[in-house]
Design a binder for these strands. Structure first.
Lengths: 227, 227
DNA sequence: CGCTTCAGAATATGATCAAAAATCGGGCTG
DNA sequence: CAGCCCGATTTTTGATCATATTCTGAAGCG
């Protein structure tokens, strides 16, 4: 089940590694990233790293920072609002479509993911929360078979990951959104509309919390305004 | 006002060139694309071309075919439906937001683009139609300042371009959607909702035509079904 | 305070290695 | 005897690396 042991090209490995670093908050927003630094870190030549960075930048997971540096973008509240708008439009639809193709074993796999997520929350494990939360949604959406919408969703998650990580770093894993139970119950009942609603609610809760977090920093702490 | 005469790196030039080829139908769906072929064609080394192709594939404008080949994807009707869903969700919103930031000179620029578009239609110039139609929408959306949504929209256009080109190749430039006049009138009136509706209508007309075109080929011509 | 110089990083090139596809030849079968 | 299929060779293509070149940022000097 581990698929190919050593079969994917190095630039693909570099891409996935960097991708997870962004998605699961191992790179903080504003933290500069150099090609050579990553190449040395990963023990790779710089060409594969270069290509991985290009792919990530074209997805908005990294941005060219003025001069020559690449870094994880710091989102403004307005930009996060755009993300939220798109996620509300796309993800419930993915959930709805996923229910059509769903087998019992798929539901079981999602339940396992949710259990791992709860365990991470109980442990206060931020990285574990981010990982299993993403996997829960990703696995659900993958069932839809809607590759175009999935690609959009992946891009949105890549951009949402870092601010979510920042919020978690401040408030810990308490009071986290978890409407996954409701979603799973609706899946077992085969009620696509209820699943879509549960997912929408789950997203909304996360959006609200991150928006509050972003609003707080923009208001005072990091002087983004005048002066 | 031509900005930087010779200032962008070669991989950026390669990216833009390839991007326009996909967007404006110079590469047909199913047509294979080789790195070295493009490198020789553009007179560049293969590294910049390589990176350009990576960026395009990560946006879905190109796909890895089997193992070694890269080509413009041929969409199924279902996949085009996903594109349509996302475009309906994103583009009217972009149009709505654009109206907020709109100056009189912006409207003039859009009118010029629309005039060039009409001229291309009258001329039966397919490439010109694709180009000015894209630029009309792209310039409008750019005014919104919503970079995240713009990125999504660009990705959707990259995927929609080739099937639109195929449809045009079959039916010519007759009966093309053009609710741009209505959109422009609403812009002058400052009515954001009416602009969004006009854009939605414009999109819907295009979607309907391409869907019919795709449905026809899948039904019979290209034996995609059994036998 | 402005200009020049220096250092570091990114870009681009070419070569080299590995893999896959297409082609060609031989053997087998009808 | 002719046609077809299978396998090996060849050629094309892609991936990676090491290196040279260029550009940007910063520091030092006039």
């Amino acid at each position: 089940m581990t698929a190919e042991p050593v079969k994917l090209p190095e630039h693909e490995r570099a891409y996935r590694a960097l991708r997870e670093m962004v998605l699961y908050g191992e790179l903080a927003p504003g933290q500069p990233v150099t090609i050579q630094g990553l190449a040395d870190l990963a023990g790779l030549g710089m060409t594969p790293v270069r290509e991985a960075i290009r792919r990530l930048t074209s997805q908005g997971a990294l941005v060219f920072k003025g001069n020559r540096r690449v870094e994880v973008p710091e989102l403004t509240l307005a930009q996060y609002g755009e993300l939220a708008f798109a996620r509300r439009a796309v993800e419930p639809e993915l959930a709805r479509r996923a229910v059509e193709n769903m087998e019992k074993t798929d539901i079981s796999a999602l339940e396992e993911e949710d259990a791992a997520l709860d365990a991470a929350i109980a442990r206060g494990d931020v990285r574990g929360y981010l990982q299993h939360n993403h996997l829960f949604h990703a696995k659900l959406y993958a069932l839809s078979g809607a590759h175009v919408l999935i690609a959009i969703s992946e891009m949105l998650w890549l951009r949402s990951g870092p601010p979510l990580r920042v919020m978690l770093g401040r408030h810990g894993t308490a009071n986290l959104p978890d409407l996954h139970r409701e979603a799973l119950a609706a899946m077992r009942a085969g009620d696509a509309t209820a699943v879509a609603e549960a997912i929408l609610g789950d997203i909304e809760q996360g959006i609200a919390q991150v928006s509050r977090s972003l609003g707080a920093t923009e208001g005072g702490e990091t002087g983004q305004g005048l002066r």
